[in-house]
Design a protein around this nucleic acid. Structure first.
Length: 300
DNA sequence: CGTCTTTGACCGGCGC
DNA sequence: GCGCCGGTCAAAGACG
């Protein structure tokens, strides 16, 4: 059962894998967001390798804020890189800046307003990536929810992110020796899904892709998940005290790091820049944190 | 007892 | 039209 990287259920709560918390042994490498559902966008991002979508403006839409997590006592080195979800297996390592600095892991996210932007939860739930939508109509094109990918250097595949996840599948990835695990938020009303896989080029890197946004407020802390709680608390703090969070991802990361009292080095800090046009206001950008931190928390 | 993981099969999209 | 591949389902088992 517990496979190689999989932390035993007890760790932190059985269901709370998700965030890269150093406490567990890892640091966040990067975060990235992906398109709002259009394949093209995803492709574009891929071209950049690592790009930060949030770049253009407030992260997320207007109302969203975002929040970040930090770890307390985050020991491990962490890196931040943005990676297009689709690029993960293909060019993960390549994109990785390969650098590591001590820092706290942090993540950022923008969260789109829990709006009706998305399709009804029920539908969305099964359609995102969808291939098989039992409840979805056939003609309907699979609508994808915004996705964000994080690259985290960690020995553990599952990192706590404050939410509880239920694993519903695992598959071998074509060009990767490592399997990809599929998780779904345990909240029945929440349509957020998460995919976790290791970079085929750098096994120390875990690529976590979030899809959708949590529709529930709180993070349901798993029984006794210290990390999760810390993460949430940290995120909350950041949200309150760091307005700058509304910055491009890179900056965002830096801020988080600073906020956490640690220095987070962003490999691309300098390049972040050129985000292509698409970087502009992402239509439905959702933030990573968005997935992790409910809107309520962000504003709190 | 309830929750979560594991695992094989199935479904559906996409490329050739 | 066919095959490949990614994503999801669902039953069974394991664990706390």
């Amino acid at each position: 059962m517990e496979d190689k990287n999989r932390a035993p259920r007890g760790s932190g709560g059985s269901g709370g894998p998700g965030w890269p918390f150093p406490g567990d042994g890892g640091g966040i490498l990067s975060l990235d967001e992906i398109c709002g559902g259009e394949r093209e966008e995803a492709s574009i991002l891929s071209e950049f390798g690592w790009s930060i979508p949030l770049d253009s403006g407030p992260i997320g839409e207007d109302d969203d804020g975002f929040s970040g997590f930090g770890l307390e006592g985050a020991p491990g080195p962490s890196e931040t890189v943005v990676a297009p979800p689709e690029a993960k297996s293909d060019q993960p390592a390549a994109a990785l800046p390969a650098r590591s600095s001590d820092a706290v892991s942090s993540s950022s996210s923008e969260e789109p307003p829990p709006e009706p932007d998305e399709k009804p939860a029920e539908t969305a739930t099964q359609c995102h990536s969808g291939f098989r939508n039992k409840s979805t109509k056939k003609g309907q094109k699979r609508s994808r929810e915004p996705r964000f990918a994080f690259m985290t250097r960690s020995e553990i595949d599952h990192l706590e992110d404050g939410y509880r996840w239920r694993k519903y599948g695992q598959k071998a990835v074509k060009n990767s020796p490592f399997p990809r695990s599929y998780y779904r938020c345990t909240n029945s009303k929440c349509t957020v899904k998460k995919r976790v896989e290791r970079s085929s080029e750098d096994s120390t890197i875990v690529i976590t892709t979030y899809e959708g946004q949590h529709s529930h407020h709180t993070v349901s802390f798993p029984r006794g998940s210290v990390h999760a709680q810390n993460a949430a608390a940290f995120a909350e703090r950041l949200a309150v005290s760091t307005p700058q969070l509304y910055l491009p991802a890179m900056q965002f990361h830096q801020n988080l790091a600073v906020g956490a009292g640690q220095l987070l080095q962003t490999p691309h800090g300098e390049h972040q820049p050129s985000l292509p046009a698409r970087t502009s206001p992402l239509p439905t950008d959702e933030g990573l944190l968005g997935d992790m931190v409910p809107p309520g928390m962000r504003n709190r």
